[in-house]
């Protein structure tokens, strides 16, 4: 059901009936497929994609580059999972290149993010260094352009 995943990645709010119509399947088949995808961990969850500049409360995001000491058994996994468990961490990826983990941290203000990095993250055994990059402006998030949309400028009737 690759097609189903593709549609849901763009719009997870479609009802099973609407999905069934788009895919040419029955509603029951679609519902069962979604349950399978949720159970086997293909679909991790659902959320609204929000433009933080328009969200009401204060909000700060940062990308932290983290360098780690790999371990004999499991490499970076144990430490990466440990970092990922913090509520402040919204995403955590192992990267190639000049650092090991890209950790996205969300907080109410700069101070909260800075405190998390200095008190929790950098003090962990195995963390060699961190570099914090605060996010200044969103142009595109999860496939959606922020700020400006494209209007339908077509004539209402044309040959």
């Amino acid at each position: 059901m690759d097609a189903l995943v593709k549609i849901l990645q763009k719009d997870a709010r479609l009802t099973p009936a609407q999905l069934a119509e788009r895919l040419g399947r029955s509603e029951e088949e679609v519902s069962a497929a979604i349950t399978d995808l949720e159970k086997n961990g293909t679909i991790l969850g659902y959320h609204a994609v929000v433009d933080p500049e328009r969200a009401e409360r204060g909000h700060v995001s940062a990308w932290i580059e983290v360098r780690l000491t790999p371990e004999r058994d499991g490499g970076f996994d144990r430490l990466a999972r440990r970092i990922a468990r913090f509520d402040q961490v919204s995403s955590c990826y192992l990267m190639s290149g000049g650092f090991d983990l890209a950790v996205r941290v969300e907080g109410e203000d700069l101070r909260e993010v800075a405190r998390f990095v200095s008190e929790k993250l950098s003090t962990l055994d195995g963390v060699l260094s961190t570099a914090t990059h605060f996010q200044l402006k969103v142009y595109k998030q999860s496939g959606f352009s922020a700020g400006e949309g494209e209007n339908d400028e077509r004539l209402v009737v044309s040959p």
Partner: peptide
């Protein structure tokens, strides 16, 4: 009005 009268793609 919802127009189904347009003879061109809706995609940019």
């Amino acid at each position: 009005v919802i127009s189904l009268g347009v003879g061109e793609p809706d995609f940019s």
